[in-house]
Nucleic acid binder design. Structure first.
Length: 615
RNA sequence: GGGGCGGUAGCUCAGCCGGUCAGAGCAGAGGACUCAUAAUCCUUGGGUCGUGGGUUCGAGCCCCACCCGCCCUACCA
């Protein structure tokens, strides 16, 4: 049994999440985590809501509430959505807890004491009225290159050139129109060049493992060439204070997101351990064994997998590991870790590509979007999960279209898998009312059982290697095999008393094969796996589900909702023999077939949204 | 500007290190069956694998150039 950390990207609290977000990190991380538990590993799956930063402040101002109130509201919404999606977090928490603050500040002090911060004076824009940093993208003005008046501080939308905000002619804040003030300000930069060599050693070792997706490892290696110090603090009042004299009480200096959200993986693990009553237990997933290698292969300690979209590769393949190395004192300045001890680097950065929507990029402002909440309100959660697993942005950008969603659901989920469950249960209910015992097996029977049994190895291996599209395709191939078996065995023709044994055998074998397919599909389709289990007379406990819980803060802060759950009872990843005599009654269909008209309805909804949101 | 991805049957896509690699699913056509949400099963696929060169005994698969899409690169999170 290996300790496996599933570290899932932290959704940003500026609003509800759309299906593109959860297609990239939510579903894939859950499929992987559920499978690893079934395969007998000790999985710790953590994530939470990322609540700090400028966009939250701006959204809060617009909504007329405080940043914390807005974050509270969105944290709850996002958690509800992820819970409804069935993502099996051991802990889904947030970044505004005292626990997170403490872990972040501890990490800061470790990095600071080891000498991996450099103080630099920068020249940046602030808002005169608030004193907050004005990120380049929030400044607009006339492009010095092409003269376009709507250029943003980071880039001109007209000529495409990248700009420096203080080169803009007649710059103004996009937030309130005021003229930004360019001031000198002092900040801490993470000395990434001092960590580059250690990062390279780690990446080379990871590359040699051959497990990372080619584009991810290549990208990670490439960005090492242009490595430079990155600011870890900024002028803002919404974030985690810098734990140093002269900084701690300065209301306008806060830690930057690169030194905040990513540390959540660690702080959430700590919070999880504290909540279990064994506060040091997080170390099983984070500290390398004595004499072992951080982030090493199986047998050398815990494994850690980070799930995110491709826009986050830099943070997880460079900045986060650099912070861990700096804390441990593994860079060119040397040093040693403090109380957290040496921490494991990522075993694998599992980055997905992007999902597009009917051929266009998701855009909340342009209303090219479907929110997780709306999707789950109108359609079966596992129909959506099936689409993501089978046609998601695993290797390359993928397009979500309603026509394809309906087709996948109707032709593959309903007609392929759902119908197999239904016809099998119907035949059993009608002829025996319970799962019959098998008599003598024919060659066809044993062949089918062998084929399906082999599926566990094939499908499992593919999931472990993060090839979920191929994995679910393979599982569905098993489904087709069973459909073929039922059709060619023609149990409905076995009517005579002398054929009773044969009928019982065929239906027993079919029930076993369906049960096996259900087990194999359950990481992808956890909700319906439980329903299918009930259809076959089981208890419906194939896949445990996460739950929302209102908890007290551990350190006296305000209470908040979390997602958690007990997943120890997940079915094992292997054939579980069906039990003859288990009652099976006439089934009700598990999956709902979609009327083709939903395509037009949803497209009309999109078009309407576009018109409404124009501007 | 730099880095990277994709362009394979009407549609969506598989094709690992070059030699049954010209494939799968859907759609279309024909047939079988009736247990099942008209579901299932069987049969049926001549697409110059974006274009032009090159390397090789042999190239979707390697190299070069080019043409189309697209992504990443930000004192965004």
């Amino acid at each position: 049994m290996t300790k496996v950390l599933s570290a899932v990207a932290w959704p940003y609290a500026n609003g509800p999440r759309h299906i593109g977000h959860v297609a990239g990190f939510g579903v894939p991380s859950d499929v992987f985590s559920r499978y690893m538990r079934m395969a007998g590993h000790d999985v710790l799956m953590v994530s939470g809501t990322d609540e700090h930063g400028t966009p939250i402040l701006i959204a809060a101002d617009e909504a007329g509430v405080s940043a914390q109130e807005l974050a509270d509201r969105n944290h709850r919404l996002i958690a509800e959505d992820l819970c409804a999606l069935g993502v099996s977090y051991d802990l889904y928490t947030r970044t505004t807890t005292p626990n997170h603050y403490a872990v972040v500040q501890e990490l800061f002090l470790g990095v600071y004491e080891n000498g991996y911060f450099v103080e630099q004076t920068t020249y940046g824009a602030i808002s005169p009225s608030t004193g907050r940093t004005l990120p380049d993208r929030y400044i607009e003005g006339t492009c010095p290159i092409c003269g376009y008046d709507g250029a943003r501080g980071d880039q001109c939308d007209n000529c495409g050139n990248q700009l420096d905000a203080h080169d803009l002619i007649n710059p103004r804040s996009r937030i309130n129109g005021e003229t930004p003030e360019f001031v000198e300000t002092q900040h801490f930069f993470l000395d990434l060049p001092a960590l580059a060599e250690a990062l390279k050693v780690w990446l080379d070792e990871r590359e040699a493992s051959g497990t990372w997706r080619p584009n991810v490892i290549r990208f990670s290696q490439n960005i090492l060439d242009e490595i430079r110090p990155r600011p870890m603090t900024r002028d803002i009042d919404w974030g985690i204070p810098v734990p140093l004299e002269g900084w701690r009480d300065n209301p306008t200096k806060r830690l930057y997101v690169w030194f905040d959200a990513v540390i959540g993986y660690l702080s959430a693990s700590v919070e999880w351990a504290r909540r279990t009553g064994e506060p040091e237990r997080w170390r099983d997933w984070w500290n390398p064994p004595v004499g072992g290698t951080a982030g090493g292969a199986a047998g050398e300690g815990a494994l850690s997998y980070y799930f995110m979209g491709k826009d986050n590769i830099t943070f997880h393949a460079q900045i986060w590991p650099a912070e861990l190395l700096a804390y441990a004192g593994k860079g060119s300045h040397g040093g040693s870790p403090r109380s957290l001890e040496e921490l494991n680097l990522p075993t694998e950065v599992v980055s997905s590509e992007f999902l597009t929507m009917e051929g266009r990029k998701f855009s909340s402002s342009k209303r090219v979007v479907i929110y997780v909440r709306d999707m789950l309100a109108r359609y079966q959660v596992d129909a959506f999960r099936y689409f993501v697993a089978a046609a998601g942005p695993e290797n390359q950008d993928a397009d979500f279209t309603w026509a394809e969603f309906v087709r996948r659901t109707n032709d593959e989920l309903v007609a392929g898998w759902g119908n197999l469950v239904n016809r099998t249960a119907n035949l059993i209910a009608k002829n025996f009312g319970e799962i019959p015992a098998a008599a003598e097996l024919t060659e066809a029977d044993t062949a089918l059982l062998a084929t399906v049994d082999e599926g566990f190895g094939v499908v499992g291996e593919l999931i472990a290697r993060h090839r979920q599209k191929q994995a679910i395709t393979e599982a569905m191939r098993m489904v087709a095999e069973v459909n073929r078996y039922v059709s060619s065995s023609e149990p409905w023709k076995l009517k005579g008393e002398d054929q009773r044994d044969r009928l019982a055998t065929v239906l027993h074998v079919a029930a076993q094969a369906v049960s096996d397919c259900n087990t194999m599909l359950s990481p992808f389709l956890p909700h319906s796996a439980n329903e299918v289990d009930r259809v076959l007379g089981g208890a419906g406990d194939v896949q445990p589900m996460p739950r929302m819980e209102e908890v007290e803060d551990l350190d006296g802060g305000a209470g908040y909702p979390i997602i958690t759950g007990d997943y120890t009872a997940a079915r094992a990843w292997s054939r579980q023999p069906v039990v003859p005599g288990t009652p099976v009654s006439k089934p009700t269909p598990v999956f709902t077939k979609l009327d083709p008209s939903v395509v037009e309805e949803e497209l009309a909804r999109l078009a309407g949204g576009t018109a409404g949101g124009a501007g």
